[in-house]
Design a binder for these strands. Structure first.
Length: 672
DNA sequence: ACTACGCCCCTTTTT
DNA sequence: GGGGCGTAGT
């Protein structure tokens, strides 16, 4: 039974009475075991698994915990525990009550931009208005900060000089909101907001809610915990590891737990099983410089003869990366037990390149490279069009690949398909209602009569000779700006949809799309773009590489799709897992944020220079040096046995001189 | 008004 | 390598 493996402190926490329990679990003190032990305790006491809600920071963490529970109980029981990130849990619940569709943040940002760009900002005073991007991000922060006053008040309080624009901002946000509602789109914030709304009306009645990584909870998430209003709350966290302030995480939520819940109990786990004495001492030296909320004493359990943390100094940034790669090559460490951790993702490329030259395999979190790559987005958009027959964003993205078709005309075409299909775009493609005009009249721009030929509708038959019989004379071709090339493009689009419209199994559909002329042609162009030299010529070697790369990604997507029987489930899952999939195997390349909750035998923390780590740019923009110090603390406490820190005094490419990070002095690895 | 294309910027962290 | 922005061309 799980609990017998716990130490006394852990056992005390795991068997705490029902109520409000806060477990302060420093790095490496067996937090996961304690949560698993707690769940076992609940199950043994007859709590029904679906009355338990486990909230974690990543879906991977929740899977791991559920798997560990499954080892001690019937796997069926473990599977019945409600678990996942706040977002995943919210999504599961919300989709039963609404027909909301989750969209990638990037997509909705585009939609937001299109709304924003319709506004005219008279640049009064010298204060420029926020960009669309910044407005979107800051509004998201506002939502997560759980502020009860309106956005305008919040903005004015933060930046009084922005007051002159707040009316326009509200207007943009309002229109965006309506647009999202019209298309049933939801972003990550909407999930939480909708969930909160639903459970406030109708609380789900959990016997206990467990919340992992409680220090990174933001006020919106905290308000969900309050709205869930469970009989018992079990929160686990460590204020020294709070590193998500930029996402609204508020350290006062954990530090005020006792004030918030007057009958709260606090447990502390103080036995560190992960790291060697030397590593832990170093981490503690540095974190001492932050204000201490509770005194924390850590007892090192790990025994043995471990080497002291090493500091490597280099004269230049790339020499550092090469030096690290060589250090790894010589140390013959096991690659999967080794991680290189950095503050900024911009470090990753140089490191990866240096490792590659020495033929050391490495693994990077693949979010940006995989799910944001054009080919994957295109594939998923095509799947979306066949699954959700009126998805505007998917149509616009796909149709914009046509030569001469930009986002504006793509939107015209989409709207036309919707009209012709009596509200359903896909139907408009196959069976256009010929009694409806294909294009709505737009108000003419009389000042600029020059090219205003929109209503000079052309004969829809003009491209018939090259069109598939089922697509010939389609009213869409009345659009005067369509030319032969774009007609061919649309024809291939039609053929792709027509041949595959009955497929419903994800892997079959992906295979067919991948083979289609339409997809092949577009990805061919994407590959060519990537193989272009500075002079505009295409490097044939690079072209081949780019093509292989695209093929590989599509195969990976195909592999993923094999786990799903239903298109909707597949597409939704792709949005939720998009940030968690990683590619390849070997040395782990991670940002500090991504390293959260993980541990490795050997850890390298690189680019420890003032400016980069701590990232001083962020400190001036509302971050804090304390948060940067916590990031350092998180990074070094990932290490079990060997910790190597490194810095470089110069970046030759950017021509910047660096001084070593203050944390190295605080760690007493360098002396003033 | 819209699209294509060339040039310059930079690149914080995540669900 | 991508995204934003200005310019030329339709």
């Amino acid at each position: 039974m799980a609990q017998s493996q716990l130490n006394l402190e852990q056992k005390a926490a795991a068997s705490a009475p029902s109520g409000y329990n806060l477990i302060i679990a420093s790095a490496g003190t067996g937090k996961t075991s304690t949560i698993v032990g707690r769940i076992s305790h609940l199950l043994h006491n007859g709590v029904s698994p679906h009355k338990i809600l486990l909230l974690t920071f990543t879906n991977k963490a929740s899977q791991e915990m559920i798997e560990r529970v499954a080892r001690f109980f019937n796997p069926q029981i473990a599977q019945n525990i409600e678990s996942g990130t706040f977002h995943a849990v919210a999504y599961r619940y919300v989709k039963q009550h609404t027909n909301i569709r989750l969209k990638q943040p990037k997509e909705l940002k585009m939609l937001f931009r299109s709304v924003y760009e319709k506004r005219v900002f008279l640049n009064r005073s010298n204060q420029p208005p926020y960009s669309a991007q910044y407005l979107y991000d800051i509004y998201s922060l506002f939502l997560n900060s759980g502020c009860k006053d309106g956005f305008t008040k919040w903005i004015i309080q933060k930046t009084p000089t922005q007051e002159i624009y707040t009316e326009i901002y509200e207007d943009v946000l309002q229109e965006f909101k309506e647009l999202k509602k019209l298309h049933n789109y939801a972003d990550y914030n909407d999930l939480l907001l909708l969930y909160k709304e639903e459970i406030s009306k109708n609380p789900p009645n959990f016997a206990e809610v467990l919340c992992d990584e409680y220090q990174d909870t933001n006020p919106l998430q905290d308000s969900i915990l309050k709205a869930l209003n469970p009989k018992s709350l079990f929160c686990v966290g460590d204020y020294d590891q709070s590193i998500y302030a930029f996402n609204g995480a508020d350290i006062s939520i954990i530090s005020n737990f006792i004030q918030t819940y007057p009958n709260a109990r606090v447990f502390s786990l103080s036995k560190n099983y992960r790291s060697s004495q030397q590593i832990l001492s170093l981490a503690n030296e540095v974190i001492q410089h932050n204000q201490r909320i509770y005194p924390k004493k850590l007892e090192v359990i790990k025994q043995g003869n471990f080497s002291a943390p090493k500091l490597l100094g280099f004269d230049e940034l790339f020499l550092q990366y090469q030096g690290i790669a060589q250090h790894i090559a010589h140390s013959n460490c096991k690659h999967t037990e080794t991680a290189i951790i950095f503050r900024n993702n911009s470090s990753a490329d140089g490191i990866e390149a240096s490792l590659r030259t020495l033929n050391i395999p490495c693994k990077r979190k693949g979010s940006s490279s995989f799910f944001e790559s054009k080919e994957v987005v295109l594939m998923l958009d095509l799947c979306t069009i066949l699954t959700h027959p009126s998805d505007m964003m998917a149509y616009i993205n796909v149709l914009s690949y046509g030569k001469g078709i930009g986002s504006s005309m793509a939107k015209d075409l989409f709207e036309s398909f919707v009209r012709l299909g009596n509200g359903i775009a896909l139907q408009g493609v196959f069976e256009p209602n010929s009694t409806i005009p294909a294009y709505e009249k737009k108000s003419k721009n009389t000042q600029l009569g020059l090219f205003d030929d929109f209503f000079n509708l052309q004969a829809k038959e003009r491209f018939d000779s090259i069109l598939h019989a089922g697509f010939a004379s389609h009213p869409i071709f009345e659009h005067p700006k369509l030319n032969l090339q774009s007609a061919e493009f649309l024809n291939e689009f039609y053929i792709l949809l027509h041949t595959n419209k009955t497929l419903t199994i994800p892997k079959h559909l992906i295979m067919q799309i991948a083979k289609s002329e339409f997809f092949q042609k577009i990805t061919q162009n994407i590959a060519k773009e990537r193989a272009k030299n500075k002079d505009g010529n295409i490097d044939s070697q690079r072209l081949q590489k780019a093509q292989e790369n695209i093929k590989r990604k599509i195969m990976l997507l195909y592999d993923l799709s094999c786990n799903y029987q239903d298109m909707r489930a597949f597409l939704n899952a792709m949005v939720l897992i998009s940030t968690e999939a990683s590619e390849g195997s070997g040395i782990n390349l991670l940002s500090v944020h991504a390293s959260k909750g993980l541990e490795f035998k050997n850890v390298y923390v690189v680019d420890l220079m003032e400016g980069r780590f701590p990232n001083l740019k962020l400190v001036t923009k509302g971050g804090s040096i304390e948060e940067e110090r916590r990031l350092f603390y998180v990074a070094v406490t990932r290490a079990k046995e060997n910790l190597i820190l490194s810095y470089a005094t110069k970046d030759m490419i950017k021509n910047i001189e660096y001084t070593p990070s203050r944390f190295l002095y605080e760690a007493k690895l360098l002396a003033n």
